[in-house]
Design a protein around this nucleic acid. Structure first.
Lengths: 149, 149
DNA sequence: GCTTGACTTGAAGTTGACTTCAAGTTGTAT
DNA sequence: ATACAACTTGAAGTCAACTTCAAGTCAAGC
């Protein structure tokens, strides 16, 4: 079963021009062509594209993804390098998760801040608020901020 | 206590030019100037900058951060809009967390794939491998892929 | 055979987020 | 008073990741 670039793009929820761009950059060495030069995507190409999407969403630059693709074509001798890249990216994902945790706490604090301000009708309530009126989970946050100043 | 742009940049681990760029874009409406025109950052500016950094790392575009800054200057009437933006960003963070979870599972699967390939000396081991040889946690992943094809 | 929509390419344009540069100013230390 | 590092600005340059455009080709239906 074959798909044109338009069909594949619809499946993946990206623009066809994006897939052409990836192809030009050497990220899709696996796509075959019809005798007339039209790209023919196969079902098994999906796994590569899925991985590509995953790595991209995890913030890996296209250049590094290309390295991975290049190494894959070069065969078993490059397995070690591929593993290294995956390991590096795993580390990056763990760091991003930690970062998002921090951001979520900050957002929740700010949401609490504005919810109470909204209830009071003004942000000024926070000027006169004692620390023990701040929900416990947000207190470490404020302490941390003080330490950095 | 005041800080120059260079001192503040060092504290935040960014280039001074970045802070100037943010200022030009209207993201730092709170910075004061000396009589000679030099930016003077205050300790309390840190909280804004910290929030800015957090929102940026959570993928919020500078334009939206600017909206938030604009609304903050406009006073209590905009509390609702600020809450909406925070809520939206919270949602975005939750989605990103889910995305990173998926990516991590994929990375772990691929790492397992290449680790076993490395042990065998070739990727070909996976051609002859039965599904029950794949660690349990990765099986849903392979099933999911089949469904999408 | 012809139309039509989807494909092809290379080149140029866009966007977001900075960075670099040139020319000039500020402020601290001697 | 002068030197000098660090600041100021506007303008231009850079980079990644696309998108758009123009001119042409392919292939499925009538």
């Amino acid at each position: 079963m074959f798909y044109t670039i338009g069909e594949m793009a619809r499946k993946l929820n990206v623009a066809p021009s994006t897939l052409r761009y990836y192809d030009k950059e050497g990220l899709l060495p696996f796509v075959e062509r019809s005798s007339g030069g039209i790209r023919m995507f196969k079902d098994e190409d999906m796994e590569w594209l899925r991985m590509l999407g995953c790595l991209k969403k995890a913030g890996m630059p296209l250049k590094e993804i290309k390295s991975f693709m290049d190494w894959s074509r070069q065969g078993d001798a490059t397995i070690g390098r591929r593993l290294d890249l995956l390991e590096k990216q795993r580390q990056s994902v763990l760091e991003q998760q930690k970062q998002l945790e921090d951001t979520l706490l900050m957002l929740d604090y700010k949401r609490w801040y504005y919810q109470t301000a909204q209830a009071a009708g003004t942000c000024a309530v926070h000027d006169t608020m004692a620390l023990d009126q701040v929900p416990e989970r947000f207190r470490p946050l404020k302490e941390e901020w003080k330490a950095e100043e």
